[in-house]
Design a protein around this nucleic acid. Structure first.
Lengths: 194, 194
DNA sequence: CGACTTACGTACCGATCGGTACCGAATATC
DNA sequence: GATATTCGGTACCGATCGGTACGTAAGTCG
């Protein structure tokens, strides 16, 4: 690499930005908030990440690799029941981790927004749909493998689990405790598969 | 009333403001957006409603009386099962009403926010807790009346139903159809009470 | 018709928004 | 050491943010 080397760790800066978006949402996170937490100036941020929207995209990707990685691990479980259990337990843990922002970046990052927040809203709506697709595909496989009863509606099952996960995220953002949320998750899957 | 009469209907204006907050969230709704939809100038808005935060409070009260009034009607049903069914069906209808904003004002009005949106965030966190309390009290009564089995955890039941309702709100905001959401609601209550 | 009271419209306030021009500082190559 | 290349900091951009001062219009009272 030629030229002056950057004086900060881009990975750490991105992590800090992710936390700010997570805690304050896309519209609620100003460039001053972001760069302040990242420990860099606006100029450095624009040079390294493009603009606010692209920074958000990268922060979301980082969220997938870190806090939301429980989703990919969940669908690797051997049975549909274990998949659903791991998925909801993972969402409970991530949305209530001590010291971190309460709730889920994919939900509270941008749910309703004005014109300025429209890009983030669309990005996250797609993110949520992808999550459902992930579960639906996995449950369809479970039906094919005989793990779930023939005729089981994989899409409906996936929608249900995702809905509970999103509800958990909202509750976590409202301050509901990890213990309560785990009870909710257990309740939702008590009569699995339904 | 002495002096010049106001040239607009305060009720209609408040309704229009509620729709803007609902569609764009507290932070995403600028005064220009609000007053534009209300058909009045900023001065008239401040004279009639105080400021942005108080306008939001009044819009939320209006939401309770209108779109969210299904909640109070639901808890008047004779049995806990009917209460839960009416509550979730009502939430599905309100969050997917044609021509209106998708989702729930109480959820997407402000879930994560920066400093400017902090008041709205707290107002809505309390609003959500009140909803749970409403159901919990009703379910406790159902236990006392013998409608629900003795030893039933009313709080846990209320948390579960609220969580599904919030999840439905998030899904609606993401564009999931009314038909799909009604299926989710049916799935959640299929093994009632649990 | 005045006098009084209230609402409306304009023009403006300081602060902050996301984003950029510009220049000096730091490093690799020659 | 000179040069090329990149990064960092300051100072600034027009636009918009929530909120207000002030003059004028539109009514009710005497």
């Amino acid at each position: 690499m030629i030229g002056r080397p950057r004086g900060f760790d881009a990975d750490e800066a991105l992590h800090a930005a992710m936390l700010v978006f997570w805690r304050q949402g896309y519209e609620g996170a100003s460039l001053a908030d972001l760069t302040g937490a990242m420990g860099i100036t606006k100029t450095s941020m624009y040079a390294a990440f493009g603009n606010k929207e692209q920074l958000f995209r990268k922060a979301l990707a980082r969220y997938d690799e870190g806090p939301a990685s429980y989703a990919l691990r969940a669908v690797e479980k051997p049975t549909a029941r274990e998949v659903a259990t791991a998925f909801l337990t993972g969402s409970v843990h991530t949305t209530t981790q001590p010291g971190g922002p309460a709730g889920c970046l994919g939900v509270q990052g941008s749910l309703a927004a004005g014109d300025a927040g429209e890009p983030a809203r669309e990005i996250l709506a797609e993110w949520r749909t992808n999550g459902r697709q992930l579960l639906e595909t996995r449950f369809r496989r479970a039906v094919d493998e005989g793990d779930l009863p023939p005729g089981t509606d994989a899409r409906r099952l996936a929608l249900f689990v995702m809905t509970v996960a999103f509800g958990i995220a909202v509750q976590a953002a409202s301050g509901v405790s990890r213990t309560d949320l785990q009870e909710i998750a257990d309740t939702a899957l008590h009569h699995w598969p339904v």
